[in-house]
């Protein structure tokens, strides 16, 4: 159907939140140190809600740059 696949760079950026919020759970699932009054695991996830957005923003930039390059080449 001629739909463009996402680039490897964007996919890798999208993988970061999965590693940070899911696969690495045993590294951060603890109470200490408490940060801003939150247990560490809760703080970690809140922080990664923000950091995931940064990752996706970067992925978006990668895709836009690629689109520009593609349309320039045509």
């Amino acid at each position: 159907m001629g739909v463009k696949k996402p680039s490897v760079g964007a996919l890798l950026l999208g993988l970061i939140p999965f590693v940070a919020m899911c696969l690495s759970v045993s590294l951060w699932d603890r109470i200490e140190p408490m940060i801003f009054g939150l247990p560490f695991n809760l703080f970690w996830l809140v922080a990664w809600i923000v950091l995931s957005s940064l990752c996706m923003w970067a992925a978006y930039r990668v895709e836009v740059a690629r689109d520009k390059k593609d349309s320039g080449a045509q």
Binding site: G14, P17, F18, C22, L45, S52, C55, M56
Partner: peptide
Amino acid sequence: TLAYVVSFF
């Protein structure tokens, strides 16, 4: 959060 990451793609 990760569901939204998936949606991007």
